[in-house]
Design a protein around this nucleic acid. Structure first.
Lengths: 212, 212
DNA sequence: GGCAAACTTGCACGCTCTGCATCTTTGCGT
DNA sequence: ACGCAAAGATGCAGAGCGTGCAAGTTTGCC
């Protein structure tokens, strides 16, 4: 997610090491858990794989589940960056659609989605995954507020737009993971995203025209 | 959620006791945690309040969080029942809107929402709350499938419609909880639900007309 | 070099959650 | 009514989780 630090500041060695440790823990967690199964992996094993003490794990994450879904922060960054890169006079829904495309066409994203798929049987993982989505949604809503100058406390629009985008992404990915392999000519992920966003497009444009 | 048991079967004493214990545990968990704070409450205290052994708690729920949000199953039932009660020739979006009204006008629902509000600072509770929403969404999608006869593996519509409804509910409640008390003439919860569903209405109707 | 802040690590402790064995209750047939 | 079998409740033990605390170690900076 977006830290409120100066983005132009070159991160020092300490920051880089911290980030590296975080990534190492998160990827080790995802790799181990998706291959062996969630409950067959202990925090100690994850810490060993990342070459830190077990105690250190809890300086970064409060639970296995949190570490497993931590990679979603990368998608959130992709989404926010891509949204911010769109021209300001473009309709918000179009910017959102393009930003979603940037996410789903990122090869790393698909790898993570596939790895997480095997863990979708674990309710706690799913729960934390949804929490990550919610965080992404909040950040996106803020970006929409910044773009449109609306007041989120008075206007439902930015929250709804962000929710629609994240929901579209979630439904598209869910559907894509579901019937894949069964149907050789199944729609592509970007096409599913388009289909989902098309549903929300008209309504959101209409709402955008009526700020209080 | 809907058990696949014959609905006309009168539940025996055993079933009734089980249901009573479940409710007792869930309400004790919500009451204790919302008043004292989540981490100030142990499973043992919840079990004591429900007058069962600590071990028994885990025969019903796998964690405190799950028990705290268990009351959402009631909302899910309200939603599904209200949706099923709508006439079959009514547009699905209209049925969904009415069903959502049935949920948010249920006084018990508002009590639970308010109680849960104080726990929204705990990431694990929020995560499980979102998981409950997702379960509600899945059940609703099945109901839409049954109503429309669409194929969820091929058609995005039922999943998207259910997701839109639950998202609308979530955004409306979230917004309603946010600026309440600050603005005396804030919109009512049903009005917010209407506003959210209005955004999704046109797009969903258009999609509904183009099944493969 | 040396200081202070930040990070890592080890330790201890209470709580969570599960598997297993046992006991009690419920449902049901005779 | 009796008794059996299934289902639930309970106790116990143990592995693992998650956190506060008090070190030790590294980093940034003057």
């Amino acid at each position: 997610m977006s830290e409120h630090t100066p983005p132009a500041a070159p991160p020092g060695r300490r920051e880089r090491k911290k980030a590296a440790t975080r990534v190492a823990l998160a990827s080790a967690a995802l790799r181990l858990c998706s291959s062996r199964g969630l409950d067959a992996v202990t925090v100690e094993q994850i810490a060993d794989a990342a070459d830190v003490a077990p105690r250190t794990f809890f300086n970064y994450f409060t639970s296995k589940e949190e570490a497993v879904v931590a990679g979603n922060a990368a998608s959130a960054d992709t989404l926010l960056t891509a949204f911010a890169a769109r021209p300001g006079d473009e309709p918000v829904t179009e910017s959102l659609r393009r930003a979603l495309h940037a996410v789903v066409t990122d090869p790393g994203y698909l790898d993570r989605v596939r790895a997480l798929r095997s863990l979708s049987a674990h309710p706690t993982v799913v729960a934390h995954q949804l929490a990550a989505f919610a965080a992404q949604e909040r950040a996106l809503a803020e970006a929409v507020v910044a773009r449109t100058g609306t007041d989120p406390a008075r206007d439902l629009y930015p929250t709804l737009a962000a929710a629609a985008a994240v929901t579209g992404l979630r439904v598209a990915v869910q559907h894509w993971l579901g019937d894949h392999g069964t149907d050789p000519r199944a729609p592509s992920l970007p096409a599913l995203v388009d289909e989902a966003m098309a549903v929300f497009d008209a309504g959101l444009r209409a709402l955008a025209c009526t700020p209080a």
